[in-house]
Design a protein around this nucleic acid. Structure first.
Lengths: 354, 354
DNA sequence: CTGTTAGCGCGTTCAC
DNA sequence: GTGAACGCGCTAACAG
């Protein structure tokens, strides 16, 4: 195993001081004569010089890396966000330290500590931890934080948010606009701000239209990877066995909507002829099922890019950008929503109007 | 912004030397009297001491972080692998630096260089770069590498492999066992070892059974996120317009299979009654479509865990484990494959036998 | 323009 | 059992 060179080795070979070598190799603006510069550059290249950033970082107190903490990378929402984060990071010569917290607060804290020890001073986090004490402490010590997806409500923490409320409202309005009156909402547990907001949007739209809402809420979630899907199936079964048969079902996310579609098929019901289905998220897989899923698009990649941009602004300029940003939803109209048929479901609906 | 303490600050407060503080706080085996030990521990805790790992790493020449380079995290195959990698890393107090190469060799090289500069000495990589010169150099300099998914054929590089060949063979055998004679294989470009292997397994099984193979190969791929799906659709269209109508279609991966299923539906054909479809990968979404996809399971999470274990072995013991490991495929029987019907497709098949 | 020197925070000899 | 002193690789102040 070959030993790697230091600036001192290069200095010795070039017969100059290590300071000069440093000035050249670190692209310092400090003046160095063209001859020496090219000579040092040549020698460094010849010997495959690779700088040891630890030395540099120790001195300059900057580790060119940012941390990202998310629940789990296998959720395509987050993997897409990360792709955006990494793109911006790369363009600024930063690297990304990835952590999956599984929504475990202790793990989350441990990760933050570990990153701070490595002198990471920029963090993008989708946090669930209710106890912000530790994070607060690190922020005092110089950590810059951008919150993603989940609100933090902390001073000095920038947020990249998405208008879940409006998304829920838009989706419901779309269904109403198609003529639906019996619109059910199926959701994972309403224990997170984002879910509550979508739910709220749904309720608002229903109320506005003078329609009676019907919400089915799932049980405690697990990280099986198919929880959402199973939840969608289960809630649909419950829904269709109830007396109040919806002509449209709105799901809190696309994976849950897949479950809804699957269960509807199992019950012999056609989408969208018999029942319309609306998702939320806009993941790629939505267009791969039959029929392609009508849904609300959440600009995940863009969220990642923006979050990283904000973080780098904080890191470089030391200035805190406008406290936050709110991204807007967009309706992705595909084929899983249609006007209610004049079948039994619609007739029941008409019946309730008298 | 508060300033963080160093061991010297702690030493001053405790009225001892920084050496003693270091010995206590770094869990050194060096003997220190119990009184001093507890005193130092107490003071460190009271003052929220957080070690600066850069100093430690500079001294000990070990950065407790491993690098992972993959084509793109949005591919659920890789995100699942990474989850496994990170779990093992975390249990060993390592952290993960994530890079998406988009199969761009220059980006790949740049990332490797960047990591090496940060003193990362362990790398898990799914490389596409044909020019291994740079990597070879870094290995000489002390980089430990585990290749994932893509063979590297380099000495000193451990491989975690999957028996794609056998997987392709098993899938085809399964179809044959169900009574299919007209089995087509649709695939993304055969430009990667893994794809060639699956293809090979298919050919072998067909040849053994005295059946005529039919392969449809897609055009150059992009990273649109839905390339595989579109490719599956396109190839299916081409296939069903041809004279030789298959009773079963085997796709090189699940996403492509989704495209096959979707296009078949668009053509008015039912799966599996009219045409059977077999996927490859075993991603979670496979069970979320209708009908649930029969496929070959690739133990991605396990691959990640094993790769990371191997890497840590190399890193800690300095020893190179047995050069590689090969994971075996498993058939995941769901509902997209059935016996061929006695419809037109089967009759045509029978016809060719005479 | 160039070199000398002094740390960054930590671990580790080597004396005591 | 403890402390003083040195150095990991690099940058930045200062002097020339």
């Amino acid at each position: 195993m070959k030993k790697s060179l230091t600036i001192h080795d290069i200095a010795k070979i070039a017969d100059v001081s290590s300071a000069t070598v440093s000035r050249v190799l670190s692209n310092s603006s400090y003046p160095v004569s063209p001859e020496l510069r090219s000579k040092i550059l040549r020698i460094a290249k010849e010997h495959n010089y690779v700088p040891n950033l630890l030395g540099k970082q120790l001195k300059t107190k900057t580790s060119m890396t940012i941390g990202v903490i998310i629940p789990t990378i296998t959720n395509s929402f987050y993997s897409s966000v990360i792709l955006g984060v990494e793109e911006i990071a790369r363009k600024n010569n930063y690297q990304v330290l990835l952590c999956n917290s599984f929504q475990n607060p202790e793990l989350e804290d441990k990760y933050i500590q570990g990153m701070f020890e490595k002198q990471v001073r920029g963090l993008i986090i989708s946090s669930i931890s209710s106890d912000k004490k530790q994070l607060k402490h690190f922020i005092d010590m110089g950590l810059n934080v951008v919150a993603l997806d989940q609100k933090m409500d902390m001073p000095d923490v920038c947020e990249v948010d998405f208008d879940y409320n409006k998304g829920g409202y838009m989706a419901t309005r779309h269904l109403i606009g198609k003529g639906h009156k019996h619109i059910a909402y199926v959701t994972a547990p309403l224990d997170r701000p984002s879910r509550l907001s979508i739910h709220n949007g749904y309720l608002t739209a229903m109320r506005e239209a003078g329609l009676e809402p019907l919400v089915e809420e799932g049980g405690r979630e697990s990280y099986s990877g198919t929880y959402e899907f199973e939840n969608g199936k289960m809630l649909t079964r419950r829904l269709m066995n109830g007396g109040w048969r919806p002509s449209a079902i709105f799901a809190c996310n696309d994976m849950t909507a897949f479950g809804v579609v699957g269960e509807l098929a199992a019950l012999g019901l056609k989408v969208p002829q018999d029942v319309s289905v609306m998702g939320f998220d806009g993941i790629d897989f939505g267009q791969m099922i039959t029929p392609p899923l009508t849904t609300v698009l959440q600009p995940t990649y863009e969220m990642g890019r923006i979050a990283c941009d904000m973080l780098l602004d904080m890191l470089l300029d030391g200035k805190k950008p406008n406290s936050g940003i709110m991204l807007l939803p967009e309706l992705l109209e595909r084929d899983s929503v249609a006007e209610p048929s004049v079948g039994p479901a619609a007739e029941t609906a008409a019946g309730t109007m008298h």
